[in-house]
Design a protein around this nucleic acid. Structure first.
Length: 477
RNA sequence: GGCCUCGUGGCGGAGUGGUGACGCAGAGGACUGCAAAUCCUUGCACCCGAGUUCGAUUCUCGGCGAGGCCUCCA
């Protein structure tokens, strides 16, 4: 008897793969750090969104759609946002037609909306919850966790202190600070470019709350009008929707230190728990044409540009192509985003059959097995490609292919062709066959080209019995 | 300086102590009036050095190289 396959995940905490056992199989909980909405999302931001979307789909398949909760925050509170608001709306704020808060709201709303539109086109399901940081600063009427209460509790428990108008986390107050990034802060100081602030007890202490000037956004708090530090929002929102201890926490590799390290410290110390999340998963970086993507290199590519503008490779790219290209590399490996790679993804996709109904089939084991091995989407895509070839030859395989493709979020959609065009195709095919009989090849080819321009691809074959030419057609993608 | 990844063919990438997956691209062929699609065949690789071993791409050590983090960053 074949053993029931077990989902195995790589855990940054232990630097090893282990079977995933949810705390409560009826209530599997995952948190992923979402975007800070000050600017358009770039292709690097897209990676965790796509990777953890696949994990979300996989968990829903294993545990049932109603038993998986996925929370991904929107950070709409950040000094970069303030700067952007001043840059874009400085004049209006100056002459009093717009308040700072209103300007900030415009920046974050516009950016968040674009983010939603971008990732939807990448085939990502919306998370179960998408909380905004600004709604979790002050104590809430619904009693969900909030940042100020969390900070208060850290002070009460001796893990944080107030100094110089700031509240700082005391990294020396918890013995295993550094367990995620495997850093020992004492050994780390030599050579590190850390400016030691004299008001800090330890160089690694970080801000939980800082005071705001009248030009900066602020919330009233026990420590004066101010705003939270960078890390506390995730601790609050994760606790608000997933509880004090949950199953999986994900994000980009670069967040391991300091962001996730500090999240862990805050959450564990505030809640007095052994762990914040059992499994910590991190996706690798995105490079563009072999080089690190950065604004200074000039190879900074936004999702919007890829989808809607002709900047990358001189053309637009469908969302499914971008998604498949992303899944063709294991999530922990660095990925080199290149035109060549996108072209290969597009070629694959073009060979896959469209129009299957995923609800009529079951995900094939050949696709599931690699995914169970730490989300090996590369193996899954290859297996899917093999299934596609089966489905192309055997319509009975279509539902299996469709269900499997849907799990990866790469099910090709059937392009809608107008009924009138569809009805006319058959008669045009007959017309062309008559032209061919008359060896009127120029006219026949022109007819074929015209149809191709309208999205209809003609395919000539031979009836095996009679040897007659048989022309079939399909909608081009 | 500290810490963490990684190095397989043109490209993407499995995997293994003993003739080296697979996909894409390339080449050749079948089919075709020509295409498209499909099918068949096929070339090409395990960073370097030392060690362990009958034998290493796979294990160990050391290099070299690439990338990342060390309080902006997915």
């Amino acid at each position: 008897m074949a053993e029931k396959p077990v989902l195995t995940l790589y855990n940054t905490l232990t630097r090893s793969k282990a079977a995933f056992t949810p705390i409560d199989p009826e209530n599997v909980r995952m948190y992923v750090c979402g975007p800070t909405v000050y600017d358009l999302a770039h292709i690097g931001n897209a990676r965790p969104v796509i990777v953890f979307d696949v994990l979300f789909r996989l968990l829903r398949l294993v545990h049932g759609e109603k038993h998986v909760i996925y929370a991904r925050n929107i950070t709409d509170l950040d000094d970069k946002i303030n700067a952007r608001a001043l840059r874009d709306f400085g004049a209006e704020i100056e002459n009093g037609t717009l308040s700072l808060n209103e300007a900030i709201r415009r920046v974050t709303e516009k950016t968040a909306n674009q983010f939603h539109s971008d990732v939807a086109m990448l085939g990502c399901l919306p998370p179960t919850h998408e909380p905004r940081a600004t709604e979790f600063v002050q104590p809430r009427e619904d009693g969900k966790a909030d940042m100020i209460t969390l900070i208060q509790r850290l002070i009460e428990r001796g893990h944080a202190y107030e100094t110089n108008g700031e509240v700082l986390f005391d990294t020396s107050s918890t013995a295993d600070y550094g367990e995620l990034s495997k850093r020992n802060l004492d050994e780390q100081q030599a050579g590190a470019r850390v400016a030691v602030d004299m008001h800090k007890k330890n160089p690694g202490d970080f801000v939980l709350w800082k005071l705001s000037s009248s030009e900066e956004p602020g919330w009233t708090s026990p420590w004066g009008r101010g705003r939270p530090g960078w890390h506390i929002e995730c601790s609050a929102m994760a606790a608000a929707y997933l509880g004090e201890v949950f199953d999986i926490h994900g994000g980009g590799l670069d967040l391991i230190f300091p962001h996730h390290e500090n999240e862990i410290a805050q959450s564990r110390c505030a809640h007095d728990t052994k762990v914040m999340a059992n499994v910590w998963m991190h996706n690798g970086f995105v490079q563009v044409e072999g080089r690190k993507m950065s604004k200074s290199e000039g190879n900074f590519v936004t999702i919007y540009e890829l989808l809607h503008e002709e900047k990358f490779g001189g053309r637009k790219w469908p969302g499914e192509v971008l998604r498949l290209a992303m899944l063709m590399t294991h999530y922990r490996e660095p990925i080199d985003f290149s035109v060549k790679r996108l072209e290969e993804a597009e070629r694959l996709l073009a060979k896959w059959p469209a129009g299957g109904n995923p609800n009529e089939g079951r995900v094939d084991a050949s696709v599931l097995t690699p995914l169970f091995d730490d989300l090996n989407t590369v193996g899954a895509v290859q297996a899917l490609h093999a299934l596609a070839q089966c489905a192309n030859n055997d319509p009975l395989m279509m539902p299996v292919f469709a269900a499997s493709a849907e799990l990866l979020g790469v099910l090709p959609k059937k392009v809608e062709v107008s009924k009138a065009l569809e009805d006319s195709v058959e008669s045009l095919i007959q017309l062309r066959l008559e032209m061919l009989k008359a060896k009127n090849f120029d006219e026949a080819d022109k007819l074929r080209d015209d149809l191709a321009a309208k999205g209809i691809q003609l395919k000539d074959g031979k009836d095996p019995a009679t040897g007659e030419r048989v022309t079939t057609w399909e909608v081009k993608r």
